[in-house]
Amino acid sequence: MRSLLWSLWSCAALLLSDVLATYHLRAGDPQLIAAQSYAQTRNNGRPPARNLNPSKTDSQCRSRPMDLVFIIDSSRSVRPGEFEKVKTFLAHMVDTLDVGSEGTRVAVVNYASTVKIEFLLKHHFNKPDLKKAISRIEPLAAGTMTGLAIKTAMNEAFTEQSGARPRSKNISKVAIIVTDGRPQDQVEEVSAAARASGIEIYAVGVDRADMRSLQQMASIPLEDHVFYVETYGVIEKLTAKFRETLCGLDPCAMGHDCDHICVNSNVSFYCKCRNGYVLNADRKTCSLKQAKAELVEDPCKCEARLAFQKQTQVALQQLTAKIERLENMVGRV
């Protein structure tokens, strides 16, 4: 019996060590970025894009507060008239949002061979000012440095100094990329880093857009984050689809720090623990309930054997708790 228990414990310990080495990572670690990139590669086989036939959406639907950054391609392939349609799409998107300092904040990153932040999240807190700022955006012409644009958005547009809310407020961070070409730089690693930092990425491809690059940039599931339209002439049809999508954003869907379960109360969220666990004082993490081990009475009254049984049961309980927490962490990646 003792040899069997020790064998089980040894195997479980080895499994735990391997899982910890693979998944016990903090956001921003190079290993987590690699994991994000690997997850993306595995999902590239899914149906990557949806040709849209948007249905009517609920006019009473209100988008949840977001820090929203548009990343728009204005390279040479985007003709002046087409770029105007992109700006119209952005203006219509603004109309669907609950813009405000406590609601949705909007920024625009414009890119070609260079990157220009047109305005930051802290600059405009009402729709008229936002739409005027959008109307003044001019194309940058040459090049398609999409990776550089994503990096700039992550490092400069999504910072608290630029108007993004702190992580503790659990405000969703969303980037919508609009492009019609193939990036001239690498997008996979920088996109994985952005996603690992908590940014949800939607990729919109138009006409000649490279589908593989869209897949590498977007969050998963790809079928919900990659869109394609044949021409800029119909890009405005995306407005209804995004309205439907963004209205469905749940503060529990991303950015929360609950160890086990996030409960959305429509006003805020709170954390709960699974059966057998208690919520700690930080109101986010969970600990295994302290329970008395049920010991089988040993006829020989051998205290050493009873102590071993108790020690083994406690160790297995702790191991089970760790494995469940790791499974929860893996599910978030």
Score class of each variant (00 low, 15 high):
2 R>M: 11
4 L>C: 12
8 L>W: 09
10 S>W: 07
11 C>K: 08
17 S>C: 11
18 D>Y: 07
18 D>G: 13
19 V>F: 07
20 L>D: 14
20 L>S: 15
21 A>C: 09
37 S>M: 12
37 S>K: 12
38 Y>T: 13
41 T>M: 09
46 R>A: 14
47 P>Y: 04
47 P>I: 07
48 P>M: 06
49 A>W: 12
49 A>K: 12
56 K>P: 08
58 D>G: 09
62 R>G: 12
67 D>R: 02
67 D>M: 02
69 V>Q: 03
70 F>R: 03
72 I>V: 15
73 D>A: 03
77 S>A: 11
78 V>F: 06
81 G>W: 10
81 G>P: 06
81 G>R: 14
83 F>T: 00
84 E>W: 03
85 K>W: 01
85 K>G: 02
89 F>I: 04
90 L>K: 00
91 A>F: 06
93 M>W: 05
95 D>P: 00
96 T>E: 15
98 D>S: 11
98 D>N: 14
99 V>W: 00
99 V>C: 02
100 G>I: 00
105 R>S: 03
109 V>S: 00
109 V>N: 03
109 V>C: 03
110 N>F: 03
113 S>D: 15
113 S>G: 10
116 K>N: 14
117 I>H: 07
119 F>G: 04
121 L>M: 01
123 H>E: 15
124 H>T: 01
124 H>M: 05
125 F>A: 10
130 L>I: 03
134 I>S: 01
135 S>D: 14
136 R>P: 04
136 R>E: 14
138 E>A: 15
139 P>L: 02
141 A>R: 15
148 L>D: 13
150 I>K: 01
152 T>F: 07
157 A>S: 15
160 E>T: 15
161 Q>K: 13
162 S>G: 05
163 G>T: 03
166 P>M: 08
167 R>Y: 12
174 V>W: 04
174 V>I: 11
177 I>D: 07
180 D>Q: 03
183 P>L: 09
184 Q>M: 13
185 D>H: 05
186 Q>L: 14
187 V>P: 10
189 E>R: 12
189 E>W: 07
190 V>Y: 07
196 A>F: 08
198 G>K: 00
199 I>C: 03
204 V>P: 05
205 G>R: 04
207 D>I: 02
207 D>R: 11
209 A>H: 06
209 A>N: 01
210 D>P: 07
213 S>Y: 05
215 Q>L: 05
218 A>I: 02
219 S>E: 04
221 P>L: 00
222 L>S: 10
224 D>Q: 15
224 D>K: 15
230 E>M: 09
233 G>V: 02
235 I>N: 02
238 L>I: 06
239 T>V: 14
245 T>N: 05
247 C>A: 05
249 L>F: 13
251 P>K: 04
253 A>H: 08
260 H>F: 03
262 C>N: 00
265 S>G: 07
266 N>K: 15
266 N>V: 08
275 N>Q: 12
276 G>Q: 00
279 L>A: 00
281 A>Y: 11
282 D>C: 01
285 T>F: 04
287 S>G: 07
292 K>S: 13
293 A>M: 08
293 A>L: 10
295 L>P: 02
296 V>K: 15
298 D>T: 04
302 C>H: 13
303 E>A: 11
305 R>F: 09
306 L>I: 12
310 K>G: 01
311 Q>W: 11
315 A>P: 03
320 T>D: 10
323 I>K: 08
323 I>A: 12
325 R>M: 10
325 R>D: 06
327 E>N: 15
328 N>D: 07
330 V>M: 11
331 G>I: 10
333 V>S: 13
